[in-house]
Design a protein around this nucleic acid. Structure first.
Lengths: 137, 137
DNA sequence: GTCTTGACAATAATGATTACAATCTGATAT
DNA sequence: ATATCAGATTGTAATCATTATTGTCAAGAC
């Protein structure tokens, strides 16, 4: 346990924003200049291997990270990139699975448009950036 | 419609292998030398926009493509990378979705180990490469 | 003190995908 | 047949997230 790792852990603990590696790097570097991007990836990898963190790949551009360990699904706004947790009401069953295939885990992902992004801006108006995690590119 | 596009369409039609862009490129180039990788991506993009093809992102290394348009889920062997279609017995509902969030679509993905990869090779034996789509790297 | 181990930082390398500029093709109009 | 124009193709360069590498450093073991 090093100061860098502690900082990353502190940032992630209870974090519902599903930050990307870059988000984490940017945040930590403010307090902790001299932090390396590699350390972020190394730490995330350690946490993943230790099962203390989940990688969320709902965003096609980059991995996002989720300290929540209870099984749940995700809902992403395709406009602003915000990701929300959803309880997994009915864990789906792999119907029609071929014999001998051992299923290990399952992802359920929803895509849509959040309320703020769904409000059409008036014609000619500048697009407002309302959501917390603005989509990049 | 050009010869290149026709070739890509022909390859994809009814294809259950969920090929990657590189798979497609390699296959087509055999018959059609002088084919460019960019054309593969362009054509795939056109087909995606036209809704004639689905992008499957279950494989973290690269996108795979699926001509099947009926909603279904996927099951991937984490060992050999093979991807199978599964019927979606119970389309999951976004429980606890916040008001105003308009849900557009949903992905259900299963990960596991296929029968061939699950057979442990005898100690010291070379790993056999059985599955159709061998995992790269 | 010296050795070992692992973490850090900086940077380079990888690899899928996208962007771009130049050329080509094919249809249509003239 | 020729000119024109839009869109497709090609080859290559650029992008960008992620991984690998290398040298350095600090803490604990002996």
């Amino acid at each position: 346990m090093t100061p860098q790792r502690a900082a990353i852990l502190r940032l992630l603990d209870g974090n519902k924003r599903h930050p990307s590696a870059e988000d984490i790097y940017a945040r930590i570097k403010r307090k902790f200049s001299g932090m390396s991007f590699a350390t972020v990836y190394n730490t995330l990898q350690s946490l993943l291997s230790a099962g203390k963190l989940a990688e969320v790949r709902i965003d096609s551009k980059r991995s996002r990270f989720d300290p929540g360990l209870k099984p749940h699904s995700h809902l992403m706004c395709v406009h602003c990139g915000a990701i929300l947790d959803l309880p997994l009401s009915r864990p789906p069953l792999p119907a029609g699975k071929p014999a001998g295939f051992r299923v290990l885990r399952c992802n359920v992902e929803f895509y849509g448009v959040c309320r703020d992004c769904g409000r059409k801006p008036a014609a000619g108006a500048k697009r407002r950036t309302i959501c917390a995690t603005e989509k990049k590119k």
